[in-house]
Design a protein around this nucleic acid. Structure first.
Length: 783
DNA sequence: AGCACGCCGACT
DNA sequence: GTCGGCGTGCTC
């Protein structure tokens, strides 16, 4: 027998939650056209799916069934002419391995953005009229009533195929009648994605491409910041080496932006391309603007763009017409070739971590990509993560510290233990804080009050029994919005009118607890009726348009006091305020997350950056009940090491990252006892595996103390510690109960391997109650 | 993941 | 009896 010149079998990875590829035969009409990287349509169960060829064989590959192999149906329709490169396949595989995610889900990351394969079957949803409980006057037929009842039970709608099962002619007729009577309406839109961000995205302009606006003269790109003088020389030396070089650039926004422009231009001069990643869209746009005003033509890629716009950018990256690509975490997978520089701006930003299933961290992916492509990797931040600082200490990365102590404002700490909380529970504005605003007003200068809270969480509680109204679905406290007189669930986004009485004792004394921007705004307005006050948070700045409107107002000098949240840092207000205050610097310090202190320090630094330099009269005032906290001490002394040393000591002592690898295991489902039980079972399995491993180690090692469980619990090589299970901090999300387990291990692979193996075992078991087992490698938020 | 098959309760 | 819900197994 003469061997065919063409392979006969392929392994295909499918976009499903499956952990292994499937084998198909190549039909004769496709022989020679099916190669690695080709997207193909294959029959899978009862449907046809588009998958990716990751291996080709002349003979039946081992492990594949000998009988019943199906043939490839056709070449992939999305891009029949284009192949994924082996680099892209390798990248997706690396993500799958690194983050214990199904490979099929990771393929999507490197595929050009395509419209979700026409999933939008028409659905039928009840109208308001249809929802009104007593049926309208005109009598409905039996079938009609029936259909309506079914549709009403499903607010998200029922698909036609489901709805019209059975007696098709009769139900179709009834459905027509309901449509005519306006009780049911056909909906062709795809079901809204159930993510938190979907609410924000709706507000974005259609086609969302933001015009890149050069920033003009107010941007000091031309003038090198004196502290960054060594940068150009170091850059040239590094780029000349043409090898992977990781560098940490530690400096404020202005400085890193200048360094970035230098680096981007130098890279392009060498004929190589630049990939820039950042945590949020606003910052991406701002960086694009600043590069545009430096004469470059950067392209933007982020989730705010339409699929079409994203595909266009993807194509531009592919065909080489884009030299600079700036984007949010998804951009790290863009098919830029001849990459010379990968720049991660704000490398400590938590939003670089994807919280959906391929739970990758764009900084880590960037590191992998840069190393594969012999590019320079720059991690830039005004307050680098402990992970990066440790990498520097261990010599895995070069640090460029470009900080100018002269930029810091004068810092004043107010110890709030000296002030009683107001009876209403509102935040105290200390006399010094009031005086700060007053003084700024006198100078006709800007004041900023930063509230270290997401949303500006203001929560209702009962004055009599202390109970809090919670979200029925998510069992988290509802956030109170005075302006709209409504409450909203932080997790699922559902909004309700303010409840009138306490859910537990029916008391009418529901009142806000803690402080929020709106309360502070109220207090400031009351105290300074003549001041022009603006509020900046996720509610007031929903779209880029709002940000621009705000900036115009500010530029025109129309604002005296700005009160806001995290959003403040996205608006480019750095160095603008004469007076910056944190009325409640401690908020967020007590969230159950080992990184809360680090986040507090970052927030303090960012807040300090909003103020003008001390020499220009800039002031920062911190109200706190923890005046001796290392984050605050570090800021006051201007010595970052005060914070870093102590925080490192804590992490080391408690064996947290970056001294140990952390993996969070989530168990969720609709039946609480089953979830708890499953979590317990997982923990037991894990512990059994760990014990087995230790036994092996003990046998192999002559040093018995290697596995001693002494109080200090130092993790020695290959040791794994299992914590939990416990109900997740949010207990319930989206109608599902959640429990979690933490796995700490000295080496990532040790913990991950055990987690993956045990999960496989559990997934073979019952799925009753919708049980799901999730692995989050390097979780970035524990709440 | 998504789909089909198969087993149970509720309505006609 | 059937309809339709959910639990379970399987997909080359």
């Amino acid at each position: 027998m003469v061997a065919s010149p063409f392979p006969a079998y392929v392994d295909v990875v499918l976009p499903r939650r499956l952990h292994r590829p499937f084998t198909y035969t190549i039909p004769s009409e496709l022989k020679g056209r099916v190669v690695i990287g080709r997207s193909v349509v294959v029959p899978f169960g009862s449907q046809d799916l588009q998958g990716l060829v990751i291996a080709v064989y002349h003979r039946l590959p081992p492990g594949a069934p000998e009988k019943g192999l199906k043939a490839i149906r056709s070449l992939g329709a999305a891009s029949p002419d284009h192949l994924l490169t082996t680099d892209q396949i390798g990248l997706s595989h690396w993500v799958a391995e690194r983050y214990a995610a199904p490979w099929g889900q990771c393929i999507k990351l490197v595929l050009p953005p395509v419209d979700r394969e026409g999933r939008s079957q028409p659905r039928y949803v009840p109208t308001l009229q249809g929802l009104a409980s007593p049926s309208p006057v005109d009598a409905l037929g039996e079938t009609e009533r029936d259909l309506l009842a079914r549709v009403r039970r499903r607010p998200k709608g029922i698909m036609a195929t489901t709805l019209l099962k059975g007696d098709k002619p009769r139900t179709t007729l009834a459905l027509e009648a309901l449509l005519q009577k306006g009780l049911v309406v056909r909906c062709d839109e795809p079901v809204a994605p159930r993510t938190l961000s979907s609410a924000q995205q709706q507000g974005r302009p259609p086609g969302g491409a933001l015009p890149i606006e050069p920033l003009g003269m107010l941007d000091s790109l031309g003038l090198p910041p004196p502290e960054a003088m060594p940068w150009p020389a170091l850059l040239e030396r590094t780029l000349a080496k043409e090898t992977f070089t990781p560098i940490l650039v530690h400096g404020n926004h202005t400085t890193t932006r200048w360094c970035l422009a230098q680096a981007a231009q130098a890279t392009i001069r060498r004929g190589r391309r630049v990939l820039i990643l950042t945590g949020d869209v606003e910052n991406a746009c701002r960086l694009a603007g600043s590069l545009a005003s430096a004469g470059e033509r950067p392209m933007l890629l982020h989730s705010g763009l339409s699929t079409k716009a994203r595909a266009a950018v993807w194509k531009a990256a592919q065909d080489g017409s884009a030299m600079i690509l700036i984007g949010t975490r998804m951009a790290v997978f863009a098919p830029l070739e001849r990459l010379g520089l990968v720049w991660v701006e704000g490398e400590d930003d938590a939003s670089l971590k994807e919280e959906q299933v391929p739970r990758y961290h764009a900084r880590e992916v960037a590191h992998y990509r840069a190393s594969r492509e012999r590019a320079v990797l720059v991690l830039a931040s005004n307050h680098p993560s402990l992970e990066s600082l440790l990498a520097v200490q261990e010599g895995r990365m070069t640090a460029c510290v470009y900080r100018d102590p002269g930029q810091a404002p004068n810092v004043q700490v107010i110890d709030m233990k000296d002030y009683a909380r107001e009876s209403s529970g509102g935040t105290v504005l200390s006399p010094s804080l009031r005086e700060g605003i007053r003084e700024a007003l006198r100078q006709n200068a800007l004041s900023i009050l930063y509230l270290n809270r997401k949303g500006f969480a203001s929560v209702l509680h009962c004055g009599d029994c202390g109970a809090m109204p919670q979200c029925d679905a998510c069992s988290v406290a509802l956030t109170f919005f005075r302006r709209g007189n409504h409450v909203r669930c932080h997790y699922c986004g559902r909004t309700k009118p303010v409840p009138e009485h306490c859910p537990r004792c029916q008391s009418l004394k529901l009142e806000p607890v803690g402080s929020g921007t709106e309360r502070v705004e109220e207090a400031v307005r009351r105290m300074f009726p003549q001041a022009r006050v603006a509020r900046v948070d996720g509610e007031t700045i929903r779209r880029p348009v709002d940000a621009r409107a705000f900036n115009r107002l500010l530029a025109a000098g129309e604002l005296d006091v700005v009160i806001g949240t995290q959003m403040l840092f996205r608006l480019g207000l750095q160095g603008r305020a004469a007076f910056v205050a944190l009325p409640d610097a401690d908020a967020g310090l007590h969230v159950p997350d080992f990184r809360s202190a680090e986040r507090m320090y970052h927030a303090l630094r960012d807040a300090a950056d909003l103020a003008r330099p001390g020499c220009a009269g800039g002031r920062l005032l911190i109200q706190t009940r923890f005046a001796d906290h290392h984050a605050i001490m570090a800021l006051v002394s201007g010595d970052e090491d005060v914070f870093v040393k102590q925080e490192q000591a804590f992490r080391q002592m408690l064996q947290y990252p970056p001294w140990t690898c952390l993996i969070r295991l989530d168990v969720s489902g609709t039946l609480e006892p089953l979830v708890a039980q499953a979590a317990g079972r997982w923990a037991t399995l894990l512990r059994a595996q760990v014990a087995g491993k230790e036994k092996v180690n003990r046998g192999a090692s002559t040093d018995a103390s290697l596995v001693s469980e002494s109080v200090g619990q130092r993790l020695v090589s290959n040791q794994v510690v299992v914590l939990g299970p416990s109900p997740a901090p949010h207990a319930m999300a989206r109608g599902r109960y959640c429990w979690q387990i933490l796995v700490k291990s000295s080496s990532l692979d040790a913990g991950k391997e055990i987690a993956v193996r045990t999960r496989e075992e559990l997934e073979r078991g019952s799925r009753r109650g919708g049980l799901r087992y999730d692995i989050d490698v390097d979780p970035v938020s524990m709440a």
